[in-house]
Computed example of a mutant assay.
Amino acid sequence: MTMRTGKGNSYWSVVSSVRFSGWAKLQLGDYYILTGKIWDASLAYSQVDKAFREDQLGEEARFRNAKLAYYRSDFEWAQGQLSVLKASTSELIANDAMYLSVLITENIPPDSVMTPLQRFAYADLLLFQNKDKEAEALLDSIAQAFPKHPLNDDILMLRSRLAVKHRDYKLALDYLRQVYEACKNCGKDDLLRDDALFRTADIYHHFLEQPVLAKQYYEQLILDFPGSTFVQTARQKLAELDNPEPVIP
């Protein structure tokens, strides 16, 4: 019995080591993106995808490669990957894949003029690379050159991420409010509206530490968008707020 337990421990130790190696390679891929080595990043993600094909780690690698293709404006290839990842068992991966897929689908025009989406994708890449001022300038150029483009709501979402990054939570909340109202008034699908509600709740919950307002927005999300992919997470967050962990003195 002791011997079997020992072998089991050895087995799980190897599994843990292999998975750690996979996660480390994903982080290496991210580092390559930060340093502008796009093809090296793609290779690193592809290696993890191949090594963990039937594992959530492989799905994460595929999503990062799809996001990388989106950054490079290879929207068709990205969509091919995202169409599968939308059914991921990981709620986070499925949510991210759904958003990116809809973003691409809704902003590829019939005339095949990709300029706004290409600029937006590149601004997203610049944000990932912590080149915030360049990203903001590029977002400004899209809004000025294409004032009525459908991407404008997504630009506001990206600006809200920038504001959170710089701890300007009031500005972030204002951007999210604009997204919610704009999508509500234009009859656009609910994808950005539920996202805006969730991000609003998250800011009140984790950054401003205002649980009453956080609960209000989590509950609104659950009631108004029962089919949202954010509902399960919102319920978990509500449970956290209703049963906070005791503070140990």
Rank of each mutant, 00 (worst) to 15 (best):
1 M>T: 10
2 T>N: 08
4 R>C: 11
5 T>L: 15
6 G>Y: 15
8 G>E: 14
8 G>V: 10
9 N>T: 13
10 S>D: 06
11 Y>I: 08
12 W>M: 06
12 W>K: 04
14 V>E: 15
20 F>K: 09
28 L>H: 13
31 Y>T: 15
33 I>H: 10
38 I>F: 09
41 A>C: 03
42 S>I: 06
43 L>D: 05
45 Y>S: 01
47 Q>T: 04
53 R>I: 10
56 Q>R: 03
57 L>Y: 03
57 L>I: 03
64 R>L: 06
64 R>S: 01
65 N>K: 12
67 K>G: 06
67 K>F: 12
68 L>W: 04
70 Y>F: 01
73 S>Q: 11
75 F>S: 02
75 F>R: 00
76 E>H: 13
77 W>Y: 10
83 S>T: 08
85 L>Y: 02
86 K>M: 05
88 S>C: 03
90 S>M: 08
92 L>T: 14
92 L>M: 11
95 N>V: 07
96 D>M: 07
97 A>M: 09
98 M>D: 13
98 M>E: 14
98 M>K: 05
99 Y>G: 07
101 S>Q: 09
102 V>R: 05
102 V>M: 14
103 L>K: 07
104 I>F: 02
107 N>F: 02
109 P>W: 06
109 P>A: 05
110 P>I: 08
112 S>V: 12
113 V>H: 11
113 V>Q: 09
113 V>Y: 14
114 M>Q: 02
114 M>P: 03
114 M>C: 04
116 P>V: 06
119 R>I: 12
119 R>L: 15
122 Y>C: 01
123 A>G: 06
123 A>E: 01
123 A>P: 02
128 F>E: 12
128 F>P: 07
130 N>Q: 15
131 K>C: 00
133 K>I: 14
134 E>H: 00
135 A>T: 07
135 A>W: 06
137 A>I: 04
137 A>D: 06
137 A>W: 07
138 L>S: 07
140 D>S: 02
141 S>V: 09
141 S>M: 04
141 S>T: 14
141 S>H: 02
143 A>G: 10
144 Q>Y: 07
145 A>Q: 11
147 P>Y: 01
148 K>Q: 07
148 K>E: 15
152 N>P: 12
154 D>S: 05
159 R>C: 05
159 R>V: 12
163 A>K: 04
172 A>S: 03
175 Y>I: 04
175 Y>Q: 03
185 N>V: 11
193 R>T: 04
193 R>I: 00
194 D>I: 03
196 A>R: 06
196 A>N: 13
196 A>M: 08
202 D>V: 12
203 I>G: 04
207 F>R: 13
207 F>W: 12
207 F>C: 14
208 L>D: 03
209 E>C: 03
210 Q>V: 11
210 Q>Y: 11
211 P>F: 01
212 V>D: 10
217 Y>A: 00
220 Q>F: 05
222 I>W: 01
224 D>Y: 12
228 S>M: 03
231 V>Q: 00
233 T>K: 10
240 E>S: 00
241 L>C: 01
245 E>Q: 07
245 E>S: 03
246 P>M: 00
246 P>I: 01
247 V>G: 05
247 V>H: 07
